[in-house]
Each structure stands twice: as C-alpha cells, then as structure tokens.
C-alpha cells in the first residue's frame, strides 16, 4: 500500500541517498584516521543534499554543499592538519572521568526517544512535502526568502547576532590567551 505512492526512480534516488548517508555516518565513527572520518562526513553531507534535491528543496541542497561541505568540513580538516591530531591516539585514556558511562546513558536515552517517536507518529506519509505545497511560480528561493524575512525575521536576526557574538568572542579569547603567553615568555 505504501509502495504504490512511489515511482521506481524516486525509490532509487532515496536508496542511493540513504546508502550514502548511512555508509558515511558509520564511517565517521568507525574509521581510525580523523582525515578519513572527515571524508566520510562529506559523503554523508552529499547524501543529505541528494535527499534534499529529491524533496525538490534545491536551494537547501546547494546551501548544504556550500556551507557544510565547502566550509565547515574544510575547517575541520584545517584543524586536523594544523594541530597534527592525525596521529594515532590512545583510546583507553579518558579525559573526563566516567565519560563512557555517561555516553552509554546518552545513547540509551536518544535511542529510546527515537523509538518512542516512531511508535507514536506516522513517519511515512508518501507525500514529498508534509506541510504546505510550494507555490509553482516563485520557487524555493522566493518561498524561503519570504519566510525568513517576514514570519521568522526576529529569529533570523537573533541567529545572526548570536553568530557575530560567537565569532567576536572566539577571536577575543584566542587573542587574550596568546597575549598573556607572550608576557610569560618575555
């Protein structure tokens, strides 16, 4: 009954993107070398972009690639290269006492929550867009732009301010630390 709502091409696209996402995600946590893990993360991001395109969210797909794959993971790699953390690390060492136990509890809560959600809601609706349909003329960008600059203007501006504050704060902290170091060594 559910299968009737899908055409073969859309199923193929979904399976491809799901495989990309899953294989990438498993790779991120199972691969030992951090650079390889970052590459797996890029694969996951591409899978998500494909899924976005399949949902005719072209703009989101493009932004996903530009922002996440094009900038954020590049910064990850940057840090890995600069700090030289691509050496093998001792996995038995725990920087925080009891972090393994806390991690196990966290995983249990997350999985439990997901299962509870799945049991209570209809996940497979068969429709590509569950809320309102995109108007045919304007397309993605117009819809998103209108939403961001009218309905959600306050949230949008608040996010912008938050990001600026975070950047300025990060620069300030980094600079102050290096200045005191300079005094100590001098």
């Amino acid at each position: 009954m559910i299968g009737a709502a899908y055409s073969i091409p859309s199923v193929l696209v979904f399976v491809t993107s799901a495989m990309l996402i899953l294989v990438g995600a498993i790779g991120v946590i199972s691969v030992k070398n951090p650079v390889h893990a970052a590459l797996c993360l890029i694969m996951t991001l591409f899978g998500v972009a494909v899924a976005f395109v399949a949902q005719s969210a072209d703009f989101l797909a493009a932004v996903q690639i530009i922002v996440y794959a094009g900038a954020i993971v590049v910064l990850f790699l940057f840090v890995i290269m600069f700090l030289g953390v691509d050496r093998r690390e001792h996995i038995h060492f725990e920087p925080l006492v009891g972090q393994r136990a806390f991690a196990a509890v966290g995983v249990a809560i997350t999985v439990g929550g997901l299962i509870a959600l799945m049991a209570r809601s209809h996940w497979v609706s068969g429709a590509s867009s569950v809320t309102t349909k995109l108007s045919s003329g304007g397309g993605n960008v117009k819809e998103l732009g209108t939403a961001v600059f009218t309905t959600y203007l306050f949230a949008f501006e608040a996010t912008a301010a938050l990001l600026i504050i975070a950047v300025v704060g990060a620069v300030l902290l980094a600079r102050r630390e290096s200045a005191t170091q300079g005094e100590e060594s001098a």
Binding site: I42, I66, G70, M81
Partner: peptide, 22 residues
C-alpha cells in the same frame, strides 16, 4: 541549466578545495 546554477558554481569551487588540500 539547473535552477540553482550559480549556487552549484559556488558549491563546486568549494569542493575543489578538498582536492588541493588532501
């Protein structure tokens, strides 16, 4: 001629960083 052509251009220039970096 994809509808987001110009964004695809930016995305590709973002991806080509990886080749050089890696």
């Amino acid at each position: 001629n994809p509808p987001m052509g110009i964004l695809l251009l930016l995305a590709m220039s973002g991806i080509s960083v990886y080749g050089v970096m890696l």
